[in-house]
């Protein structure tokens, strides 16, 4: 078995790649027909009038739910495969000893592709700062990693279109770069818990960089099972609430509360958003429906960023390694960045 192993591996690799290509083609065909299929289901099978409130809500759900889930599967798979090329170990090596401004930019970008989960924020933070990654650069990474993620981008793309997805991604990255830079300028190293810098950090690089495509595809599929398996109830709940708003809330209802003219809407949206713990999957469909009913884009973006980017559980976890002053600076600086983005878009658009 050992002797024939390379050939076997090669064959199974080709087979897997072929399977993936087939799956993607099938996906594309289904996706192209989805709107027709959804309309047929709503009007012919369910006999619903899309002009009625209930009909509009059901039609919205029947089309949006499969669309978002399909995009989610595709993108999570793609990102899962891309992530096999990056490990936190490599990211750390790339960032160690970087000069600040360039380091902030690189850290924010790496935050998008490096696998991250807020439960390992502490070891990651210690690993970074003890190996000579500047504190501000570390923060750029910690801000961008949760905020600019594939799930948020998929939902924004499918519900709002590519322009807003791009807008969210670029402003999210800008906030990560700039707030990391500001935290670096504030010279807050003494507000990291003292024991952190005294840590002895070993090195290990267990995820070998020489993985076969077979393994990478396998890991991509694992990511789909893991992530989509976890977020689909939120997506469906979010779209259901969104569908309700879509069908029943009158046009321009939100204009007075979350519209452009309400100057206080942006700070209130951020303040409400910070302690709210929801992932992108649950919040974006709701937010999309609000936007449709007259909420201003800047306010909505600010709300989304505050909910996704600044989460209470993550700050509680980070409290282990950061003194309260630095936690406050972190929330303050990122919160201000989000505020500026919110106002900017309300004024510009």
């Amino acid at each position: 078995m050992i002797a024939s192993a390379p050939k076997d591996e090669h064959n199974s690799e080709l087979r897997r790649i072929a399977l993936v290509v087939c799956a993607v083609v099938l996906w594309a065909v289904l996706y192209a027909w989805l709107e027709t299929l959804a309309r047929w289901l709503t009007i012919i099978v369910l006999h619903l009038d899309t002009a009625s409130q209930f009909g509009a809500a059901v039609a919205f759900f029947i089309y949006e739910a499969p669309k978002v889930l399909m995009l989610l599967v595709l993108v999570v798979f793609g990102v899962g495969v891309v992530r096999t090329f990056f490990t936190p170990e490599q990211t750390r090596k790339m960032l160690a000893g970087r000069r600040e401004s360039a380091g902030n930019v690189l850290a924010a970008l790496l935050g998008v592709v490096t696998p991250f989960c807020s439960c390992s924020a502490v070891p990651l933070f210690i690993g970074f700062v003890t190996s000579g990654v500047p504190l501000g650069v570390t923060f750029s990474f910690l801000v961008s990693a949760p905020m600019v993620n594939e799930i948020a981008l998929v939902l924004l793309f499918s519900l709002f279109g590519w322009k807003i997805a791009l807008l969210y991604m670029s402003t999210g990255l800008a906030i990560a770069m700039i707030s990391g830079w500001v935290i670096g300028r504030l010279k807050m190293e003494r507000f990291v818990e003292d024991w952190v810098y005294k840590m002895q950090v070993g090195s290990s690089d267990c995820a070998s960089p020489h993985q076969s495509w077979d393994e990478r595809i396998g890991l991509g599929l694992d990511a789909v099972r893991d992530i989509v398996g976890k977020v689909w109830p939120y997506v469906l709940a979010g779209i259901a609430v969104g569908a309700g708003i879509h069908g029943y809330v009158p046009e321009n209802f939100m204009a007075s509360i979350m519209g452009k003219s309400a100057w206080w809407a942006v700070p209130v949206a951020v303040l409400i958003g910070i302690p709210m713990y929801s992932n992108a999957a649950g919040i974006i469909p709701v937010v999309q429906a609000l936007l449709e009913k007259g909420a201003a884009l800047g306010t909505v973006l600010a709300f989304m960023m505050a909910v996704i980017g600044l989460s209470l559980p993550e700050t509680i976890i980070l409290r282990k390694v950061l003194k309260p002053q630095l936690i406050a600076a972190f929330i303050g600086v990122v919160g201000c960045g989000i505020l500026i983005v919110g106002y900017l878009f309300n004024i510009l658009l």
Binding site: E89, P115, C117, S120, P123, V201, G202, C206
Partner: peptide, 21 residues
């Protein structure tokens, strides 16, 4: 941290880290 683990959970067999995150 001594073991060099930055992504949890990680597994080590006979002292060697085999997989992380």
């Amino acid at each position: 941290m001594n073991a060099g683990v930055m992504l949890t959970p990680a597994i080590a067999i006979d002292g060697e880290v085999k997989s992380a995150g």
